[in-house]
């Protein structure tokens, strides 16, 4: 790992207009960095701002969102100064993102193959049609899809969720990005295929030396795949830990989350209820 961070975010704020004319702050001063080839997990409950922080990085925030930051850099490029065009060139090429549910994230009226080929077409417009198709098939093979030629001609509703998510991975890894954000990539999938899909993603990311930001509410899963874990609560990062040191968590919220994980050895007593304190939402409330 080099010392120069691939992603460098400092004091990121994201707010949405409220009905009463005020602003609702969804992300309140988040700072983190990611080294090249590093795998970072972001954990938190819904609404904690974990997805928004990474969407800000890719430049695909909802239109009415207001964003500010002291620093927002990708491989030395100042994303705050970059034009929309420059940011679009980065997307899909050097950074990309996998969304939660392939049922919604794939275009229902276009063939799977065409959607993967589109990723190549945008990145390498000079490629011939046949070459684009060949590469798309290679990509489907890389995500362990059997008979990729057949799958190329299927529509999203004709494939399973696990296969759809692998198509999504193929599409987003097509141009070998240096950063992949996976936003709850397995939450919509059957438990049986979750590990498989994650391993395929992990394999591609590791082999190509990309950085990974894995967003999830599943603490266990994140600590298994990542080097480092950020815990978010109410728009702030409350704790940053190495994945192999989860047991050293100090923040009461993280400890509460860990205590809620069921284990086979447990006595069967009711799991503890997660306690929240209003003070955690304030910066002073951090231990």
């Amino acid at each position: 790992m080099s010392d120069k961070p691939l992603v460098d975010v400092e004091n990121l704020h994201i707010a949405f207009p409220r009905e009463d004319g005020g602003w609702h702050e969804a992300v309140r001063g988040v700072s983190f960095s990611l080294l090249a080839r590093e795998k970072l997990g972001i954990v938190g409950e819904s609404g904690s701002g974990k997805s928004l922080s990474s969407r800000a990085l890719l430049g695909v925030l909802p239109e009415h969102a207001r964003m500010s930051a002291d620093r927002l850099r990708f491989d030395g490029i100042d994303l705050l100064q970059a034009s929309p065009r420059e940011r679009r060139k980065l997307r899909g090429g050097r950074m990309s993102m996998i969304l939660q549910d392939p049922k919604f994230s794939l275009n229902p009226v276009l063939k799977v193959g065409r959607q993967i080929m589109e990723a190549f077409r945008i990145g390498y417009p000079a490629l011939s049609g046949a070459e684009t198709r060949r590469r798309a098939i290679d990509m489907l093979e890389a995500v362990h899809i059997r008979s990729p030629e057949r799958v190329m001609d299927l529509y999203p509703h004709q494939i399973s969720g696990g296969m759809g998510q692998r198509v999504m991975i193929a599409m987003m890894m097509a141009r070998e990005p240096e950063l992949l954000v996976a936003d709850e990539p397995t939450s919509a999938l059957d438990v049986t295929v979750r590990t498989q899909v994650l391993s395929i993603m992990d394999e591609l990311v590791t082999r190509r030396g990309a950085g990974l930001i894995l967003i999830s509410h599943d603490l266990k899963l994140v600590s298994r795949f990542c080097n480092r874990v950020l815990v978010m609560y109410a728009g702030r990062i409350v704790e940053s830990l190495r994945a192999d040191e989860m047991h050293n968590a100090r923040h009461p919220y993280t400890r509460g989350l860990l205590a809620c994980l069921p284990s086979i050895q447990s006595t069967g007593d009711p799991l503890p209820v997660l306690q929240r304190e209003a003070g955690w939402a304030n910066p002073e409330g951090q231990p």
Partner: peptide, 17 residues
């Protein structure tokens, strides 16, 4: 407002596309 529109943007497609 559908999510596949976000996917297309994430791929780097132009606004027209």
């Amino acid at each position: 407002n559908r999510e596949y529109v976000l996917t297309a943007r994430l791929k780097g497609a132009s606004e027209f596309e």
